[in-house]
Amino acid sequence: MAKTLKRTAAFVALGKALTAGARGGPGVGTRLAAVPRMIRATSRGEYDGGMRLALMTAATIYVVSPLDFVPEAFLALFGLVDDVVAVTWLAGAVLAETERFLAWEARGKAVIPGTVLP
């Protein structure tokens, strides 16, 4: 059940992201430009996207890897369907995570560095 909800959330995020430019939200280009910054912030321990980035990396490797050609060779339709589902999930996950990252980044820029006095 939880996997279905996460999958549904990724598909909803994909739909929202593709129409975000028309609604005034960050466009796809802005989100994709945020990916290197998100990876850098995660590797430095500043942003908590480690597990999500690992899952996105695993999905990318699955789609690109030669092992993925095995289902296509024996079960042509199933092999293509699993690729479509994986790529759609990956696109939705990247767009949802970049939206989350951009919001995190905006909150960080709104903080004024200094010392809190009692």
Rank of each mutant, 00 (worst) to 15 (best):
28 V>E: 08
64 V>E: 11
66 P>K: 08
37 R>M: 09
69 F>C: 09
90 L>Y: 05
101 F>A: 02
61 I>H: 00
84 V>A: 14
82 D>L: 10
91 A>K: 03
72 E>Q: 10
86 A>H: 02
88 T>E: 12
74 F>V: 10
4 T>K: 09
33 A>F: 07
13 A>R: 00
60 T>F: 14
66 P>M: 12
75 L>P: 02
76 A>Y: 09
36 P>F: 10
37 R>I: 06
84 V>S: 05
73 A>T: 11
22 A>R: 11
64 V>C: 13
98 T>W: 04
7 R>Q: 12
53 L>D: 03
83 D>M: 12
95 L>W: 02
14 L>C: 04
25 G>P: 01
39 I>N: 00
41 A>I: 00
55 L>D: 10
49 G>H: 08
33 A>D: 11
71 P>D: 08
90 L>S: 00
24 G>L: 08
11 F>L: 15
5 L>F: 07
74 F>T: 13
97 E>I: 02
27 G>T: 11
95 L>K: 02
48 D>P: 02
26 P>E: 12
23 R>F: 14
108 G>F: 10
56 M>K: 01
19 T>G: 09
85 V>Q: 07
49 G>A: 15
40 R>Y: 09
8 T>G: 10
98 T>K: 02
40 R>D: 15
112 I>Q: 15
76 A>T: 14
73 A>I: 08
57 T>L: 14
106 A>E: 15
21 G>W: 15
29 G>N: 12
25 G>Q: 06
78 F>V: 15
38 M>V: 02
14 L>S: 04
11 F>S: 07
44 R>K: 13
17 A>V: 00
54 A>Y: 09
106 A>Y: 05
